[in-house]
């Protein structure tokens, strides 16, 4: 039996028909919609490379059935920048060297966007490290990642004050 679901992906409404309910949100994004910015690392919820936002909350797309998220707003790494202007978290990862090989970076950035929105870590590096522990970096760029999240937290807080 085929199932049809509707997702708003990076602001665009998309109707998708699945012939198999086993398709995860991750595989739907990568294999059917060709949004390959979201990475598949472990496929077991342990590495965080597949992190996306679902209705504004960071989740592991590999442990989410696409059908379970029918109707959701999904944001992937492709949906963060505004034209040529990078999202402040993206810019901070570049400025603070929060990566080496880059494979985990889309997940790191989406997780950081989610973490900052949760407003639990603030400017405490220990809380940021703890809050980012669901994202593994094999190159161990953790020092740069922590600095980037700290800087982006500050930038977004300034932007919020101006708005």
């Amino acid at each position: 039996m085929s199932h049809t679901l509707t997702l708003t992906i990076n602001g665009t409404v998309q109707e998708v028909t699945l012939d198999d309910p086993r398709v995860t949100l991750l595989d739907l994004l990568r294999e059917r919609l060709y949004l390959t910015g979201t990475k598949k690392g472990c496929d077991r919820g342990q590495c965080g490379a597949c992190t996306v936002l679902a209705n504004g909350r960071r989740i592991n797309a590999c442990l989410a059935l696409a059908l379970s998220h029918d109707g959701a707003e999904i944001t992937t790494i492709e949906g963060l920048a505004r034209g040529d202007t990078l999202h402040p978290v993206q810019a901070a990862f570049i400025a603070h060297d929060g990566m080496q090989c880059g494979y985990c970076t889309p997940g790191q950035i989406m997780s950081a966007v989610g973490l900052i929105a949760e407003a639990q870590a603030g400017a405490d590096p220990e809380r940021i490290r703890e809050g980012m522990s669901g994202n593994i970096c094999r190159c161990a760029a953790y020092a740069g990642i922590t600095k980037a999240v700290l800087a982006a937290t500050e930038t977004l807080s300034q932007e919020a004050k101006r708005a």
Binding site: G45, G48, T51, R58, L63, A64, G131, M132, S133, G134
Partner: peptide, 9 residues
């Protein structure tokens, strides 16, 4: 327990 992403789900 778990991670931020897992606790959200």
């Amino acid at each position: 327990g778990a991670s931020g992403q897992l606790r959200n789900a």
